[in-house]
Nucleic acid binder design. Structure first.
Lengths: 357, 357
DNA sequence: ACTCTGAATGTAATCGATTGCATATTTTTC
DNA sequence: GAAAAATATGCAATCGATTACATTCAGAGT
C-alpha cells in the first residue's frame, strides 16, 4: 500500500516537472546540442557511439521526450498530417472511414508524425472554419474525396501543401493519387452481371460531385456498350451514395414497363437501401432481382442476403497513401507527389446475384 | 486568365511566407505585446478599442494567425485534447464512434483546441506506443471506454491529466463521467419485455472487461428479480459485443429444453448477429423470438426487422463531455472534473419485439 | 498647477528544442 | 612526427508567440 502510493507520487511528480533537454545535458555533462544530435540520428553531424549510448540511456531512465512545440517552432513544421474526411451523413456513418483511420493510426504510431482529423461538409459554413490558407497546422494532407467543391472554391487547389488523394482522382490530375481503378472496377461489375446472363440492368448512381462515381459508371457502361446494351433512362437513378435515398428511389425501377433483372449500385449503402425496399414490396433478392454493390463494407457480408460486391482494399490504400506522404515530407525532391498508384480491386461473390442460365 | 494566375501566385506567396506577429506589429506601428493582447481578449491587460479594431482589421487583411507551436511552447500546453478510442475489431467498425467524432469536431471547431485520436487496443503492443507519461502532447483526455486494462496497468489511473469518461464509469468513480445510466437503461429493457408478456428471457452479454455491460445486466436483472424471474444459466451467453460471436452463439439459446421467447442483447451488434443466425435456422424475429438491442446504432433502424432497442444519445454525450473538459481547462479550480452527469436514454420501439398478450 | 491613479503600451525575458558556425579532438596520411 | 583531414563537441542565435515588469500618458481630484 505504501509502495503503491509512493509509486503514484513519483509518477505524478515526473509528470508535473517534465525533463528538458537541459536537464539531460547537465546529467550527461555535455551540451544540449550533443543531446539533440544523439537523439536525432538523421542529422549529418556525428556523435561518438559511447556518448550516444550514455545519452540514450539517460533519456530513457529519466523519461525524457523532446518538447513537441519547441521542436515544431524551430523546425517550422507541425509534424502533423491532416486527414480530410467528407462529413456527409450516411457516408460518414458507414464504417468506410474507420478502415482509413485504422491504417493511418497504424502507420504513424512509429513515426514522429501525428494525424489530425478535418471533418468537412459541403456547405461553406464548416469549410470556412478551417484555416487552409495558413495550412491549418498540418504539413500535408490525406484527402479522401476530391469534392468538386474543392475545385470550384479553389480551396485546396491553390494551396501548396503536400497532398495525397484517395478515392477520387483530382480532375486535373496533378496530384498524387492512390486507390483502385474505378473504371476497371466498373468493368468487373458489368462483366460479372453479363456473365450471369443479365441483359436488362438498372443503375443506382452516386452524387454528381463524385468523380469516382463517374468513373465507376464509365467502366460499367463501356462494357455494356461493347455488348450493344444500354440502360434505359428510367433505369438510371441517382441516390447520392445514400441508403435512404436508394430506399426511396427503388420504386422507380419497378414502374418502368420492361423490368430489370439486375441492378448495379455504385456503393454498398445504396444496395442495402434498394434491397430493403424491394423486400417490403415482396421482391426478393436474388430470386427476383440481382444486386451488385461496390466497396465491400463491413456490413456487406452480414447483410441479408450477403451482398455480392466489388472489394476495395481501403486499409491498404490509406496505408500506402500515408507512406507516400511521409516519404515526400522526409525528402520532397526525391519523392515528388505526382502520379497515380493503383491497387487491385476484386469481385467478392456472395449471394445477392443469381445466374440466369 | 491572367487574373487567375496572379491570384494563385499571391496566395502561394502568402502561404510560403506567413505573417508573424512582428509583421503585424510593424504595420500597426505598435509593439508585439499589444498585438498579442488585442488578439487574445481574455488577458487582464486592456487595449484601447480603436487600437484593437485597427489590429483586428490588419490581422484579417493579412491572413495572420498566431503560430501554433510558439504559442504552445510559451504557454506550456498543447491546446489539444486526446480522444481515447478502443480499437477493437467489430466495435471499432460499428459506426458508434463516428457520432463521437462528429460531436467532438463540431464542439472544437470554434475553440482554440484541436483533437487527436488515440486508438488503443487491449494488447500491450499498441498501448505502449503512446507516451502517456509525458501526456502524449495533449492537455486532456476524452476516454470512451474505461477498460479494465487501464486500471490493472495503472496507465491512466496514475496520470494526472484532466479526463472525462463516457460510456463506462471508472471503477473507483473519482473522475468525471458523462453518459446514460446503464442500470436504468437495463431496467427499461427488462420492463418493456415483461410488459410484452415475456417470461422466459435470454441474455447476450458483452465482454467481461466492460463496466457498462455489467451495469446493463445489473439493471436488467434487478427488474426480473422483483418479478421473481431468473435467467437460466444456459440462456445467459457472452458474446463480447461482437456481431460474429453472437452469430456463433445463437444456437445455444435453442439447445436448452425450455425455449426462450425473448432475448436481451447488451448491444445492437450482438442483436444483429443473433437474428441473422436465427433467420438461417428458420426462426423468425419477432414471430418466434423477440429481440431487444442496446445503443440504437445507425443500422438498427435499417435492419430487417427494424430493431427495437435502447437509444443512447451518443452525440449529445460526447458534446457534453467536451464542454466539461474545455471548461475545466479554461478554469481548473472553478470547474473540477468529478462527478457523474447522466443524460436520459429511452426505448425505441420498432419491430423486433412482439407482444405475447 | 500638481499630484495621483489607472489605463494603455512598450521592453525584453522566456518557453525548449535545433542548427550554423567555431572550436577541440582524434585519426589519417605522407 | 607534422600537417591535413575527419570527427566530435560546444557556443549562441533562432523560431514566434506570451507576459512580467517598466514606462508613458490622460484625466480626475484638490
Amino acid at each position: 500500500m505504501v509502495n503503491l502510493n509512493k509509486g503514484c507520487k513519483q509518477l505524478q511528480n515526473m509528470t508535473q516537472t517534465p525533463k528538458t533537454i537541459k536537464d539531460i545535458a547537465d546529467l550527461a555533462k555535455v551540451s544540449t546540442a550533443t543531446i539533440s544530435r544523439a537523439l536525432n540520428p538523421d542529422t549529418k553531424m556525428m556523435v561518438a557511439p559511447r556518448t550516444r549510448a550514455k545519452i540514450e540511456d539517460l533519456a530513457r531512465k529519466n523519461g525524457y521526450t523532446p518538447n513537441w512545440a519547441a521542436r515544431n517552432l524551430r523546425q517550422k513544421n507541425s509534424h502533423t498530417i491532416g486527414i480530410v474526411l467528407p462529413y456527409l451523413p450516411g457516408i460518414f456513418y458507414s464504417n468506410y472511414y474507420n478502415h482509413i483511420l485504422a491504417a493511418v493510426s497504424d502507420k504513424l504510431i512509429h513515426s514522429p508524425y501525428q494525424f489530425k482529423l478535418l471533418l468537412l461538409d459541403q456547405n461553406k459554413s464548416k469549410w470556412d472554419q478551417y484555416d487552409f490558407k495558413n495550412g491549418e497546422r498540418v504539413d500535408g494532407l490525406l484527402v479522401i474525396h476530391w469534392f468538386k467543391y474543392f475545385t470550384s472554391k479553389k480551396v485546396l487547389q491553390n494551396l501548396n501543401l503536400p497532398c495525397v488523394i484517395i478515392n477520387d482522382i483530382e480532375p486535373n490530375g496533378e496530384r498524387q493519387f492512390v486507390g483502385v481503378d474505378h473504371v476497371v472496377s466498373g468493368q468487373i461489375a458489368a462483366n460479372y452481371l453479363l456473365r450471369c446472363g443479365h441483359r436488362r440492368i438498372g443503375v443506382l448512381s452516386g452524387p454528381e460531385w463524385s468523380v469516382d462515381n463517374q468513373q465507376r459508371l464509365e467502366g460499367f457502361f463501356s462494357v455494356l456498350k461493347k455488348h450493344n446494351l444500354t440502360v434505359a433512362p428510367e433505369h438510371m437513378v441517382r441516390a447520392d451514395y445514400l441508403e435512404e435515398k436508394a430506399y426511396a428511389a427503388a420504386d422507380q425501377f419497378l414502374r418502368a414497363k420492361l423490368k430489370i433483372t439486375a441492378l448495379f449500385a455504385c456503393n454498398d449503402q445504396m444496395a442495402f437501401g434498394a434491397i430493403r425496399r424491394f423486400k417490403e414490396l415482396g421482391i426478393t433478392c436474388p430470386q427476383d432481382i440481382s444486386v451488385i454493390g461496390y466497396d465491400d463494407e463491413f456490413q456487406a457480408a452480414r447483410f441479408d442476403p450477403p451482398l455480392t460486391t466489388i472489394h476495395v482494399p481501403v486499409y491498404d490504400i490509406a496505408a500506402e497513401a500515408v507512406s507516400l506522404l511521409l516519404q515526400h515530407l522526409a525528402n520532397p525532391k526525391s519523392a515528388p507527389l505526382t502520379g497515380i498508384k493503383y491497387l487491385p480491386s476484386r469481385l467478392v461473390e456472395r449471394q445477392s446475384c443469381r445466374s440466369m442460365t
